[in-house]
């Protein structure tokens, strides 16, 4: 793969009134890699994701997609580029089934009429291609699914659209051990398919297990974006809690010194 990140955020600034939530943040995601985005509560992870998705307009900085500067004003713009976000609180409708949820907002029609069987087939194919074996029927209502199954559906929904970048905001937060393992292996498979996966998580074990690159946000600044192989758990925790790493010369700690 090339070195050019498919998604790059440069010097991103975002403030809410007097509060500067993101202060000149740099962030890169490569195709075929899992890029973890970590940081303490309130560090600005969700805010950064909302800037990526177009939910928030950035106040300053550059948004590059495949090396080209782009303007993303709404989630629609992001989708059009091939960027899909799977939010913390899964955006699924309980009263609809898996197929209906996966195609929500982008239903296939022939003429005026919904093309149910083609959507059903495509949904099944997508799940099969992700080796998802945990859901029994794609016509099952989402209300009856477990947390892990819901997460799977939400991720598969993002994949259905031939997206290139998938951002997952704490996909394993509410899951047990087995379901977490399953979702993480799904995350890995997405990257192996060539997607750029951005994974937000508070769980260091998960992050170290699945990520290729780790970006650490500290109080609205990017403390470091490092290669997974260059850090261990202890160093990562130090980065997250203090925003710096004592006596380190790891490449990628671009703005190591945080005042």
């Amino acid at each position: 793969m090339s070195d050019q990140p498919i998604l790059e955020m440069r010097d991103i600034k975002k403030s809410f009134g007097p509060v500067d939530v993101l202060k000149e943040v740099d962030f890169r995601a490569q195709a075929g890699q899992v890029t973890a985005l970590v940081g303490d509560n309130g560090a600005g992870k969700s805010t950064l994701v909302k800037c990526i998705s177009g939910t928030y307009a950035i106040d300053g900085g550059e948004y590059l997609y495949e090396g080209r500067p782009v303007v993303v004003h709404s989630p629609r713009d992001a989708s059009a580029l091939g960027i899909e976000i799977v939010y913390q609180d899964l955006a699924l409708c309980d009263n609809l089934d898996i197929v209906q949820n996966m195609f929500l907002g982008r239903e296939r029609v022939s003429g005026l009429v919904l093309d149910e069987s083609s959507m059903e087939q495509a949904a099944e194919e997508t799940l099969r291609s992700l080796s998802v074996r945990t859901v029994k029927s794609v016509r099952q209502r989402v209300a009856s699914l477990s947390g892990g199954q819901r997460q799977t559906v939400a991720i598969a929904k993002a994949v259905l659209w031939n997206s290139n970048v998938v951002v997952l905001d704490e996909p394993t937060a509410a899951l047990g051990v087995a379901q977490t393992a399953q979702v993480l292996s799904l995350v890995r498979r997405l990257a192996d398919r060539g997607l750029a996966v951005v994974l937000i998580s508070h769980n260091m074990t998960d992050v170290l297990q699945v990520a290729d690159s780790i970006a650490v946000l500290y109080l609205g600044q990017m403390a470091a974006q490092v290669d997974r192989r260059d850090v261990n758990q202890q160093q990562l925790v130090e980065l997250i809690t203090t925003g710096r790493l004592e006596g380190s010369d790891i490449a990628g700690i671009t703005k190591g010194a945080i005042a």
Partner: peptide
């Protein structure tokens, strides 16, 4: 039961936020 609009009615009734994010 057969149109996109109808599907969106059910979706908004089921989860307004999800529908909004889906671009409805």
């Amino acid at each position: 039961s057969r149109t996109r609009y109808g599907r969106h009615v059910y979706a908004v009734g089921g989860n307004e936020e999800a529908s909004r994010r889906a671009g409805i």
